[in-house]
C-alpha cells in the first residue's frame, strides 16, 4: 500500500489571496486568448467617441470639450466593465452553474468579488488607456496637468469606489434572474447622461449633480477634468479637495456595504432557493 500524500491546503489570508488571484486570472488571460476583443473593445468604442467629438466640432465647441469627450469615452470602458462583468456577472455564473460551486467551495465570496474587480480593473485600464492615448493623438488634445499626485489619487479613489459599487450591486443581482440583463442594459445611457461622460455636470441643477455624485465616476470625471484641462477648474462642479473627500467616503461606504450585502443576499438567496434557479 502506498501512503496517501497529504494535500497542502491554504487557509485564512492565504486562501483569500489565492481565491482573489484565481478569480482575477480568467479576466486577464481570457482576453489574451480572444484577440477579437481588441476590435470590439477598443476600435469600436473609439469610433463611437469620435462621433461625439465631431458633434462638438460641428457646433464649434471650444477645444477643451474634445478632451472632455475623450476622457469620458475612455471612462465608459470602466462603467461597462462594472455593469456587465461585475454587477451582472453573478447572474451569468448562476446561469452557467458556477455560482453554486462558488458557494460550496471553502472560499470567501468577498475574495471572489475582489478577484473579479481586480482582474476586470486591470484589463479595463489597458483598454481605457489605449482609447485615451489614440483618441488624444488623433484629435490633438492638449493636457495641462495641475497635479499628477492629485490626479493619481482621484483615479485610484474613483476606481476603488466604482468597483466597490460593482461588488455591492453584484450581490443584489444574486436575487435577479432574466431582468438582470435588462437592468444592466438600462443603466448605460441614463448614467452617461447624469454622470456627465461627455459634458461637465456643472451644467445640471445642483441637486441633480449632487444625486449623480453617488456614482463614483461622476466626481472622478469632474475632478480629472479640473486637473488636466486649463478651463477645467472653471467648469468643475465642486473643488477637487471636496471631491476627493466625497470619493474617499464613497470608497468606504461601498466596500463595507458590499461586505454586508453579499453576506445578507447569499443567505437570502439560499433561503429562497435562488442560487440554482434559472428562469429563462
Amino acid at each position: 500500500m502506498t501512503p496517501i500524500s497529504r494535500v497542502h491546503k491554504n487557509q485564512g489570508v492565504k486562501l483569500f489571496i489565492q481565491t482573489v488571484i484565481a478569480r482575477a486570472y480568467p479576466r486577464l488571460i481570457g482576453q489574451q486568448r480572444e484577440k477579437s476583443w481588441m476590435f470590439f473593445d477598443i476600435v469600436l468604442p473609439l469610433l463611437s467617441v469620435s462621433a461625439y467629438v465631431f458633434i462638438y466640432r460641428a457646433i464649434n465647441a471650444p477645444e477643451d470639450y474634445i478632451g472632455f469627450v475623450i476622457i469620458g469615452g475612455a471612462m465608459t470602458a470602466f462603467w461597462m466593465n462594472v455593469l456587465w462583468s461585475m454587477s451582472s456577472q453573478l447572474y451569468w455564473e448562476k446561469e452557467q452553474g458556477n455560482l453554486a460551486l462558488y458557494i460550496l467551495a471553502p472560499n470567501s465570496m468577498m475574495a471572489i468579488l475582489l478577484g473579479m474587480a481586480l482582474g476586470g480593473m486591470a484589463a479595463t485600464t489597458l483598454r481605457a488607456a489605449v482609447i485615451m492615448i489614440i483618441g488624444s493623438w488623433i484629435f490633438n488634445v492638449h493636457y495641462a496637468v495641475v497635479s499628477f499626485s492629485q490626479l493619481f489619487l482621484v483615479f485610484l479613489l474613483a476606481m476603488v469606489a466604482l468597483y466597490g459599487l460593482g461588488m455591492m450591486s453584484s450581490s443584489v443581482y444574486l436575487l435577479l434572474s432574466r431582468e438582470a440583463w435588462h437592468i444592466s442594459n438600462l443603466a448605460q445611457e441614463p448614467i452617461y447622461l447624469v454622470s456627465g461622460f461627455y459634458f461637465p455636470i456643472k451644467n445640471f441643477n445642483f441637486w441633480i449633480a449632487a444625486g449623480a455624485s453617488l456614482i463614483p465616476l461622476t466626481l472622478g470625471l469632474d475632478a480629472m477634468r479640473q486637473l488636466v484641462f486649463t478651463t477645467g477648474a472653471s467648469l468643475g462642479f465642486l473643488s477637487v479637495p471636496i471631491e476627493l473627500g466625497i470619493l474617499s467616503i464613497l470608497c468606504i461606504l461601498f466596500l463595507v456595504g458590499s461586505r454586508y450585502l453579499i453576506g445578507y443576499m447569499e443567505k437570502l438567496a439560499i433561503r429562497e432557493g435562488r442560487l440554482t434557479e434559472s428562469r429563462r
Binding site: W37, L44, L47, S50, I55, M80, N185
Partner: peptide, 23 residues
C-alpha cells in the same frame, strides 16, 4: 465568443460616425 455587451450596439455606435446621423 460571447463578448460582454451587445455587439450590435457597438457596431451601430461605430457606424454612427460615418452615417451623417448627427453631423
Amino acid at each position: 465568443v460571447h463578448h460582454e455587451f451587445g455587439i450590435g450596439d457597438a457596431i451601430a455606435g461605430a457606424l454612427y460616425l460615418f452615417s451623417g446621423a448627427v453631423f
